[in-house]
Design a protein around this nucleic acid. Sequence first.
DNA 1: TATGTCCTTTTTTTT
DNA 2: AAAGGACATA
Length: 661
Amino acid sequence: MLANLNSPQREAVKYLDGPLLVLAGAGSGKTRVITRKIAYLVRDCGFDARHIAAITFTNKAAREMRERVGELLDSRQAKGMTISTFHSLGLSILRQEAKAIGYKPQFSVLDAADAQGILSDIIKTTDKATLRRAAALISNWKNALLTPDGAEKQAENEAEAQVARAYHSYQATLKAYQAMDFDDLIRLPVDLFRADGEARARWQGRLRYLLVDEYQDTNGAQYELMKLLAGSMGRFTAVGDDDQAIYAWRGADVENLRRLGEDYPTLKLIPLTQNYRSSRRILEAANRVIRHNSRLTDKNLWSELGHGDPIQVVDCKDDRHEAETVAVRIDAHRFQSRGRFADYAVLYRGNHQARVIEEALRAAKIPYILSGGQSFFDRAEIKDITAYLRLIANPDDDPAFIRAATTPRRGIGPSTLERLGHYAAERHASLFAALFEEGAKAALPGKQLHPLQEFGEFINRLAFSAQREPAGAVLDDLLGAIRYETWLYDSEDERAARSKWENVRDFVDWLSRKGSDEGKSLIELAQTVALMSLLEGRDEAEVDAVRLSTLHAAKGLEYPHVFLIGVEEEILPHRECLEGSRLEEERRLMYVGITRAQRGLTLTWCKRRKRGQEWLPCTPSRFLAELADGDSRRAGPELAPEDAKAAGKRRLADLKAMLGG
DNA sequence: TATGTCCTTTTTTTT
DNA sequence: AAAGGACATA
């Protein structure tokens, strides 16, 4: 387990005398340290896998780690190991301890959209920006472990106090729906462990060694949860890099790095500075940029890899031209190097930037995978189906009730729901419970009540069969009964309907398989669906396609050739983040982008961009100046359209060669 | 009262 | 492009 590690890596794997913080620079092999350490604990130190928990930042990272641990341990040794995100871990704690905090074990988990919907009913505003600000404020409070009362006390002005009061009723509403939002998945386990020493001891006994990845991106609540689980002995290894902290806007606090040293005076610190990923030019550029930040530690990454190709900076006419440039260059380069599409990634600051790139790649017939972006589970058709599942598992889930009752249309509209809502509020009951009450007959005219009751009985029937029949059969019944396919084709154009139906089929097949593989009922599946993503479950790695990703979503990944687009003032750094600590976070984002590249790095920016109706001139990002020192070189004359055509011909020849023609 | 059509607006990053 | 809102229609 200790072979092929450099000496600080080996030290990090072996160190078990107390709490450990590994300061791992980009590409310094931190995942390798974590996975090796897990295997070392099990194989060389006699740990039972059930006593080990590895905590990652995304589900995708968790999956990859599980895979890599699987290469080091056989399945018997790895059985029962916890490898998950903070949120998934919190969810499983809460499912088991629900009763202790006044929830039933089948509570629902709301996504951000549903949670915001509830909030908007509470603060009656039409202004979307206000709503977003309020939601963000409440989220920050939750991540700082502030209760509604606590928030109200320390509110700095009347507006904040108002939001604090909204926080109060928001929380009450969630409880009434037997629902939680994402932040609750961390906050509530912390509350539980603080109040209930027995539960805390139980979980500490169960998870005896913690490994926390991307530690710099933990927020106050997550840190607290980690401490409660690790106990006073500090049986953990935290791995992080302050230069890659890019989630402050979500409540993450780099201060947690410093706090770790204060809370655990015996904390051992091991820095990893040798980079195994990038060529020297790329690494030096990254170092030059990040030097402009005030930093906890001034670690300069170094590498034994060669100089590599010069970094390219390309100025483009506009975003269309930028997209075409990227497409043409990927195409030409791949042809010359006989490489794979999967060797290229296009990275950007905001999701909207992907659209033009997608168009250009489609036009050039270059396959691509959009990662980050909106997840499979955010798609309307998937949310439609999951609304039914949520409702079957938890009939008190009002947001799910509303969505399922109205899609597809079945004669239940806004005014019906409003009447029912009023009545339910009066009775302090959920919508579902209210519609079966005697009093509902008086509150609603028969014309409105009738379709509601029909719907309610339909859900009851499904819930009944979901308890005894396999998940797949129930799902097929459901889709047939609501005639979802027909409805899709009626309300969308053919192309959209087909792709949506395909997604639904994928989703349903996947659930059925999961149901029979793991012997889970539909109800059990429905309870975990909120935190999973189908795309993350698929073996994306196999597909030969260019990757498109936001900078945030690209963290932790690496690609032979990276195109970082839109390197302009007001984009990177973002217009809202032009000074102070926010600018520093933007610089770290740039740093993350640069250090994704192994061999090739191309930075592009546009001279003008369309904002609304008019063209506005753009200026290159200040980060370009920080990075440049004659190493990077300006691109030659812009590629003429003829080159694009030539590239097309080459592609054809290439394809023929591949087919053996 | 439910639903369909046309119009406006939208954008930071995500569990 | 796509979602949400205002207005029109059945």
